[in-house]
Each structure stands twice: as structure tokens, then as C-alpha cells.
Design a protein around this nucleic acid. Structure first.
Lengths: 199, 199
DNA sequence: CGTGCGGTTGATGATCATCAATTTTGGTGG
DNA sequence: CCACCAAAATTGATGATCATCAACCGCACG
């Protein structure tokens, strides 16, 4: 949809569909730096060029505003800036969590973390909580996952196979995932917010 | 100074000195997620617990505001929210650049990138630009660098030695760095904004 | 029926982590 | 001022993890 450095005279909000933000090194190495889901905000007030590549991974519908009028609107209605600030702080937290993943987690933990996050996001919507089991579709190809996690697509494939072999997940088709025991998956992800028994 | 999860009823601005934001996995693996330099903002309006560990690496002086009054002030003076929004967006950009580094760069590129960034930051202050050569002090131990870069301290040490051996940098003492050719260092960092001859 | 894309799996190798030993440095107290 | 100590840093040997190169499968689609 958009290449880093392109002129971008609008800001937008995702209505439906999924897109990714990526950065690349000139030799082609690619890192995803953000995932755009419905309700996410795109673009930056006060900057007229895109800082990242934006790629649609599904059909996508966005609600666009030309940048100038939007900036003026922001000046007039203080609440918008405050709302944007909250959203941006949330994104910053997400980015920092991702830094921990990229810098310190093993390949297996990375995959488990990604699955946990996608599972959680879907869980809030269609919560098939019969027992502990959970079900969702992966919105990403293996390659996109690799770019998200800082791995190669081969490693992604292998680790998914390994998690399946170990019974942490089940697959029906390539994209449809069943998590029989969410606790187990969270353990595998490493960030074990549940080791703390007393909180 | 502060542990993740601590109650934090103030926000602050760094006046002088340096501190780090880190996240850890319960087995001790640590990832730095931000560096606090003078003028940086600490804390988050609308949240009463710290999300990260904050560690002073030097003596540090911060200007603190209790959170409640600050939030009220923010409601009354829209410009503050706008200013904070700009700063947060800048931090988000920095975090995303760091994601590219963590996910896709080699150890040598990581070190070169870190040196470039510190050099640039200092360059703006004390610009000894005789020729291309540049001089600065590393504000971090090898271990802190390792936590920043997602490496071990041994790898950091080895790569710094390698860059020295290859003439990319010179060292006097352990912390004082001389960069004879900044272009060269930027090449090593990989993000080669200068391969584009025509921009 | 071929073709391209996404995915899986295997063999091999490079990079970086780990474990361990030493050296250097900066600070402190005698 | 020097000796000594702890922390920081370097260097080496070895191994685990993940990347790379390559072959192959299944499926959708023209």
C-alpha cells in the first residue's frame, strides 16, 4: 500500500482487515514493527512522509482524513490529542514488550508468544472457552511470522511442528490452531505472569 | 530506583544523568527497552504502576511532579498533551528502529549501530569535527550494552575488539572511543542511509 | 496439466552463547 | 603512595541454536 519515504498527506484509522508495518535493511532483511488491526491509527500528525512500509495482508478498509484538516481539528479539540496519546503509549508498551521478545527469547518462546497474543486477541471476540481450549486462525503467512519474530520462515515452520509434536497446539489445515491448554502455551511463552502465585 | 510493578504516583523529567528502562524474564534474562537521557520523560499519565525497572547508571537528577496534579494540568493546558504526544511518537519510532536492530542485525552491526547513536547524540553537543574524526565516552558498561543489544557481554567485548582491530574505532581507556571515520562506522552499522547516492 | 505459492523437512555450517580462566581498572584504606 | 580488592573487561575453548541451501509436497488457478 505504502512504501517508506512515500509522501503521505493523510492519517487513517483501520476499519476492517489487517496490515503490517515493516522496516527493511537495504540488503532485504525485513523486520515487522507493528501490526495494524481494526481501530488502530495510521500515520503521524506533523510528518508528511511515511516512516515504514505498510502492507495489507488481507483486504482492508481504512477511514482516511487529510492530514492538514486533521491537525487543525486536533488543535481545536484537546481530547483528540489525549486519546491519541493514550493509544501511542499503548503502542509503545507493545513495542517494548516486543523488544524483550526479539532480544531475549528463544525461537520456541517467540512462536509461543505470538500464538498467545493472537489467541488472546481472538479470545476477547469469540470466546469458545469450553474447558481451557481455544481456537483461532493465524492471520499471517509463515514468512510474515518470521519477519515479526526475527526468525527465518524455516525456523518458524520447525518450531510450529515441534509445538504440535509436543501437544502444545493442534493444527487443522495450515492456519487453524487449537490450543488445548492455554496455561501450557503461556508457560512456553516464557513471560510467565503466573509464576507469581501471590499476586 | 524503581522496580516494575512498584507504585509510582509521580511523573518526571530527567534533568541530568542517565538511567535505563529494562524488562526481565523471571529467569533473569534482561532486555533494555529505553535509555533515559536529559529532557526525557518518565512515567505515564493514567497509570499508577511502573511497567519497567528504572535503573540509574550515573548520578541522576530528575524533576518530579505528583501524578494527579499533573493530569489535571494536562486537562487544562492542551499543549502539554500535544507535546507529550510528539515525544511519545519519537520514542515509538526509536523503539521500532531498535526492533529492526534486535531482530535482524548481526552482532557487529549491533555494536556499530550503538556506537553510531551515542556518537550522534554527543556530536550535537561537543562537535570536535576536525576532519571526520569524532570522540565520545560510552555511558554504559559492557553488560548494559549487552542488555541493550540482546547479546551477551562477552560477545559485546569481542565485537568491540574486532572493530578496534579493523581500525573502525580506537579506544583510550575502556570507555573513551575515537571514531576516525564516521562514514565507515555507519557502513558497518548496516542502515546505510548513505547508499542512496541520489537522495 | 503445468505453474507458482505456501509450507515442510533435511543436511550442513556460521554465529553467538556458555563456561572458564585471566588481566585490567578504579577505588579504598593502611 | 602503594597494596590490595572487587568489579569490569578480555580472551579462549566448546557447544547449542538458528540460518542457509536444497529438495519436496499439496493446493489453487489459469
Amino acid at each position: 500500500m505504502i512504501w517508506s519515504g512515500d509522501k503521505m498527506d493523510f492519517v487513517a484509522s483501520v476499519v476492517s482487515g489487517i496490515a503490517t508495518l515493516t522496516q527493511t535493511l537495504e540488503d532485504g532483511r525485513t523486520q515487522m514493527v507493528g501490526l495494524l488491526l481494526p481501530s488502530d491509527f495510521v500515520g503521524r500528525p506533523g510528518r508528511d512522509r511515511a516512516a515504514y512500509n505498510i502492507t495489507a495482508t488481507t483486504d482492508i478498509l481504512m477511514c482516511c482524513f487529510r492530514r492538514k484538516p486533521f491537525e487543525e481539528l486536533m488543535d481545536r479539540t484537546p481530547h483528540i490529542a489525549q486519546r491519541l496519546l493514550q493509544m501511542t503509549l499503548d503502542e509503545l508498551d507493545a513495542a517494548r514488550e516486543w523488544m524483550l521478545l526479539l532480544g531475549r527469547k528463544t525461537a520456541r518462546e517467540k512462536i509461543a508468544s505470538l500464538l498467545s497474543i493472537v489467541a488472546r486477541r481472538d479470545a476477547s471476540i469469540r470466546h469458545r472457552g469450553n474447558g481451557n481450549s481455544l481456537t483461532f486462525d493465524l492471520p499471517l503467512t509463515r514468512e510474515a511470522m518470521a519477519d515479526y519474530l526475527g526468525l527465518t520462515l524455516e525456523t518458524v515452520s520447525r518450531q510450529i511442528s515441534a509445538l504440535k509434536r509436543d501437544g502444545v497446539i493442534e493444527l487443522t489445515g495450515k492456519r487453524h490452531v487449537i490450543v488445548p491448554d492455554m496455561e501450557r502455551l503461556l508457560m512456553e511463552a516464557g513471560d510467565d505472569s503466573d509464576g507469581g502465585l501471590l499476586t
